[in-house]
Design a protein around this nucleic acid. Structure first.
Lengths: 180, 180
DNA sequence: ACCTGAACACCGTTCAAGT
DNA sequence: ACCTGAACACCGTTCAAGT
């Protein structure tokens, strides 16, 4: 609050005429993150799986555009316009695509939770990397017995690899299923 | 740190002989959360889809057992035993189940990110509810034009409904897919 | 209506000194 | 090896008073 006030060239107390408290400000920040989502080329009247994927990728991109974007957005229920727009867009796309046995709300919610979960992990990794703490952390991963099946580091492989590719792989898993 | 020190009947400075800083302590807390996961009845030698679902449900239950459990666990890379155990268990189960075209690591990562994302949202809701702030927030949701398709509140419906059911519905979506 | 100054009750972290 | 006391540099929030 104090640093934000300084950036706005105002005294900290002045912020409390605009936001009830820090959490109220963070809700507004969450909507500001959603507001940067690029919806160009998304047409809810002719939905495709590719558009759903694009939608999630742009949601991810929007969060990645801000420090702690994932954590800001996660669980902040910003009751504002941009938040409503992305929710409705994703759900409308899905309504025209999914199996009739499923609920579009459940699918949209799963996709959004996957996406925010992925980005939180990703930004934590990037912060650790930038601070030079990542290598020490990976080094201290428990060396477990014998076989390579023991290394607990799929997360490590995913984070240090091509994250765009891995994110899309996860989306495809959700959309197309994993078992026969 | 100060409150934890008080609970441990020790001076704040003493904590810094055991943990480098607050984040280091939170990593240990994350592992402590994972350590409460009940793995009874999970047999990685004869994997079933039901076991995967149970595994994710117990992961959710473990996080729900602690204040801010989801946020503590998300993006904290605790390089400890319990963290490695749940990761390896989930992946081993999946290796025996998924379509050969998929990677067990990607699927496990998608399931974990979905689960932590869901729990973060859930705990934020529960905190808001306990603080009496939830109703005011939902009231302020933008009333958008005409049709009921406009309400942006799938998240609201999911959170205020049977969350166990909704969580499982999301898991099934991921495991069995959404499109033909 | 919006802002300032000043205060209140906190934080995380460090470090010499003790045992 | 582990802990205390005390300090340093911060926090979020409130509120009378100003304009």
């Amino acid at each position: 609050m104090r640093r934000l006030a300084a950036a706005a060239e105002v005294t900290p107390g002045a912020l409390y005429k605009h936001f009830r408290d820090k959490r109220d400000l963070q809700r507004a920040m969450a909507d500001a993150v959603y507001a940067t989502i690029d919806l160009a080329g998304i047409d809810t009247d002719s939905p495709t799986v590719d558009q759903v994927i694009t939608c999630c990728e742009r949601l991810r991109a929007a969060m990645l555009g801000f420090r702690d974007g994932g954590r800001i957005v996660a669980g902040s229920y910003s009751p504002f316009a941009a938040t409503a727009t992305i929710s409705a867009t994703l759900r409308k796309l899905l309504e025209g695509l999914i199996l009739p046995s499923l609920d579009a709300g459940d699918v949209a919610y799963a996709l959004r939770n996957y996406t925010t979960g992925f980005v939180i992990e990703e930004q934590a990794y990037l912060t650790l990397l930038a601070g030079g703490e990542w290598d020490a952390l990976v080094q201290s991963l428990p060396r477990q017995g014998g076989t390579e099946a023991g290394r607990s580091s799929d997360a490590v492989a995913i984070l240090t690899g091509d994250r765009d590719l891995r994110f899309r792989a996860g989306l495809k898993v959700i959309l197309t299923g994993t078992v026969a």
